[in-house]
Computed example of a mutant assay.
Amino acid sequence: MSNLNTVLYPGKSGRKNIFFSGKGGVGKTSMACITAVQNAKKGFKTLVLTTDPAAHIGDVLDKPVTDKITKIEGVENLYAAQIDQKKATEEYKEKVLNDAMAKFDESTIMAMKEELESPCTEEMASFQKFVEYASSEDFDVIVIDTAPTGHTLRMLELPMDWSKQIQLKAGENAEITEEDKKQKARFDKVISMMKDEEMTTFAFVMYPEKTPIIEAYRASQELMTLDIKTQLVVANLIISEQDAVTPFYQKRRNMQLGYIQEIKNTFDKAHLLEVPMFDDEIKGMDMLNEITTKLF
């Protein structure tokens, strides 16, 4: 089983990426913010980042968060940014097509435009933004709310330049440019960092019920095909023993305890972090500070 310190904080390399994944509504954003605050309190320069357009990272931190990196007041070393998926996708498409204009004929450009309308393009664009952050040396820890799925990562292991992929399909045989090579090297570096268990932690957040456990397990198996192991699982919204004072809550707690055992059995190589249900919405630095003190 993974040790909590090794999955949460930078090791010898001095760097750590922590990805939080899981189905909608299980508390990924809250866990990303809690983990980022904890790392910042430990003295690591930390960026919490979301690629989820519906994420409420600014609500949890109770600070305005935009697509520009912002210093979060109230905790030293803490920064946040929200990737604007629509903007990132448009920039990505524009760059790919501009690069292609100089290389290909009209029919190939049309084929590329069609390829770029695929839903996968949004994931690739968001991930490319993450690559920009991850390949810089500005932060000790980057915590990402909403990890890319296995199929996105598999696509990213293909030759990274989209125009080159289309070009191969079109039967052309031009050289890959120096810029393409640099981009490929940067992607390769980040993908290899994501496979390095010391530098990257993949975590799944779930509440202790059947559907979130099944979904998390499927996604973790997909990542396993890329040699990426799940090192942390978070069982969220657990009813504590002292709160289970009515028959209803006692029954719910007993059900949760059964599912917590199932999580332990299913993710037997990962560290399990049990997070209680709080009586208030998780919001603001005071509450985040309080939670990190209780949890860690």
Rank of each mutant, 00 (worst) to 15 (best):
A102M: 11
K103F: 08
Q85L: 14
K87N: 12
M112T: 14
Q82C: 02
L97H: 10
T89N: 09
K95A: 11
Q85M: 13
P64G: 03
K93D: 01
S107T: 12
E94W: 07
A80E: 01
N77K: 13
Y79E: 00
M110P: 00
I83N: 02
K86I: 12
Y92C: 08
D62W: 04
P64H: 08
M110Y: 07
I69S: 09
D99L: 11
E76G: 06
K113I: 09
T108D: 08
V65K: 10
D84Q: 09
V65T: 12
T66F: 04
D67M: 08
D105C: 03
D105R: 09
A111R: 10
A102W: 02
A88W: 02
E114Q: 12
M112C: 07
K113N: 14
K68N: 13
A102V: 01
N98F: 08
T89G: 11
K95M: 07
V60D: 01
M112L: 14
Y79Q: 04
D84T: 09
V75D: 00
K93Q: 04
M110T: 15
L61E: 01
E106S: 13
L97T: 11
A88K: 00
L61H: 04
N77E: 05
A80F: 02
S107C: 04
K87P: 06
N98I: 07
E73Y: 09
K103D: 11
N77G: 02
K87W: 07
K95C: 00
T89E: 14
E73F: 09
Q82M: 11
A88Q: 02
T66A: 00
E90C: 04
D62L: 07
A111F: 07
V65N: 03
L61G: 00
D84Y: 08
F104D: 05
Y92D: 09
K68Q: 15
E114P: 00
A111D: 13
D99N: 14
A88L: 03
Q85S: 15
N98D: 14
K63G: 02
K95W: 05
K113D: 13
G74S: 06
A102F: 05
D84N: 15
I109W: 05
K63A: 13
T108E: 09
Q85R: 12
Q85E: 13
L78T: 03
T70I: 15
T66G: 05
A111W: 03
L78A: 05
D99Y: 10
E106N: 08
D84F: 06
M101N: 11
A102N: 10
V96D: 01
K71N: 10
D105P: 02
K87Y: 10
I83R: 07
E73G: 07
K68D: 15
K87T: 12
Q82G: 05
E73M: 10
G74L: 10
E106K: 11
A111Y: 08
I83P: 01
E90N: 11
L97A: 11
E90D: 13
E91L: 06
A88P: 01
K86C: 07
T108H: 02
A102K: 15
A100Y: 01
Y79M: 06
V60M: 05
S107F: 12
E91A: 14
T89M: 11
V60K: 05
N77W: 02
D105I: 06
K113C: 09
Y92I: 04
S107H: 12
Q82P: 00
V60P: 00
E94M: 10
F104Y: 14
I83M: 05
A111K: 14
D67N: 15
K95L: 04
K113V: 08
I83Y: 02
I72W: 02
F104H: 14
Y79V: 06
E90G: 04
I69K: 13
K103E: 13
